[in-house]
């Protein structure tokens, strides 16, 4: 079953899936992939594959989230004996273990100080820097997390994962301008990523809707990026959903022709082409048709056979019945 696969865990692990994943611990723990024989023989009798360690790491994380600390400790010691105590990744995993087992905020602060110590010894340890941001975030100190993240990004500006994190952190603070900037950096590194385009579009649409009346240029940009996501992935439900939402916001603005012609004159210097009423209507129709197709397709497949979440389909149905 696809929901409890340790090699490729789903992109959203709900608690029941996490439980199913961590219940595989006894099986994995009883079969060590490395051999216990002395050196030359251990090479011959080792049964490890690259996948074994990915499975161990994923199992470690799901054991921690379900509170199975014993299994997690065993998995960690197995990983440490294979890759060495000072391996950057093992140090990070140990940090995650300490974070998870920290009961009070004070002990979490201690873990945080441990990270500072590691960074004093080796300031280039990027994954520990990321852990620091994660701890600050879970302590609720979002502005400190943003500062730590900007330092990280100054030192390593090609880290696309960190740009994505920065974008979401800013978005959680409703700092739309900064969030859009970071998301556009992500687009520079991953221009063919449909989810990154949909993310930028969502940010534009949220930032445009935060002003009243909604800004026409923001909505146009949102529509543009959602259309790009559709262009990259013709089965992307989220993008079609976004096209429909943005179009429903744009249509009343554009149908007020007087406003739109005036706005269009203003927008020229900002270089955001505003779509015409007819093309937005057409896009709306296409999105409606496609969403209907996805819903029918989901209904005709067996459970677990479709790539879409049930929640996505329910949301699309609700949007169409409005």
């Amino acid at each position: 079953m696809a929901t409890a696969n340790l090699l490729a865990p789903p992109s959203n692990i709900a608690p029941p899936a996490a439980l199913a994943l961590s219940q595989k611990a006894p099986l994995i723990l009883s079969n060590p992939p490395t051999s216990s024989l002395p050196w030359p023989l251990s090479l011959l009798f080792s049964r490890e594959t690259p996948e074994s360690w990915a499975i161990h790491e994923n199992l470690f994380l799901s054991a921690l989230r379900t509170g199975d600390e014993e299994s997690a400790a065993q998995l960690l010691s197995r990983l440490a004996s294979r890759f060495g105590e000072h391996n950057e990744r093992i140090v990070t995993l140990r940090g995650i273990y300490n974070e998870a087992t920290a009961q009070t905020p004070a002990s979490l602060e201690k873990v945080f100080e441990g990270y500072e110590k590691i960074l004093r010894e080796d300031p280039t340890n990027i994954s520990i820097r990321k852990r620091r941001v994660a701890v600050l975030k879970s302590l609720g100190r979002t502005s400190d997390a943003v500062t730590a993240l900007t330092v990280l990004l100054q030192n390593s500006p090609t880290d696309v994962e960190a740009w994505a994190e920065a974008s979401e952190l800013y978005a959680s603070q409703a700092a739309w301008g900064q969030a859009i900037y970071c998301a556009e950096e992500v687009l520079l590194f991953a221009p063919t990523s449909w989810s990154a385009h949909a993310h930028v579009a969502t940010l534009h649409s949220l930032s445009a809707s935060s002003t009243s009346p909604p800004s026409l240029s923001g909505l146009s940009l949102a529509l543009k990026h959602f259309c790009r996501a559709v262009e990259l992935n013709e089965g992307y439900l989220r993008a079609f959903y976004g096209v429909k939402i943005v179009a429903s916001k744009l249509l009343p603005l554009l149908s007020d022709t007087q406003v739109s012609s005036r706005k269009r004159g203003e927008q020229d210097d900002e270089d955001v082409p505003v779509p015409t009423l007819a093309s937005v209507q057409k896009l709306d129709e296409i999105a409606t048709k496609k969403l209907g197709e996805f819903i029918r397709d989901f209904g005709s497949r067996k459970k677990g056979q479709s790539g879409y979440d049930e929640a996505e389909i329910v949301a699309a149905k609700e949007l169409l019945s409005r």
Binding site: S11, N12, V133, E161, E165, A171, H199, L206
Partner: peptide
């Protein structure tokens, strides 16, 4: 990239920032 969960969504987030 962990960008599929939407803003403030319940995705897994990014592995480095677990």
């Amino acid at each position: 990239l962990g960008l599929d969960g939407g803003i403030g969504g319940k995705g897994e987030g990014r592995r480095g920032f677990f």
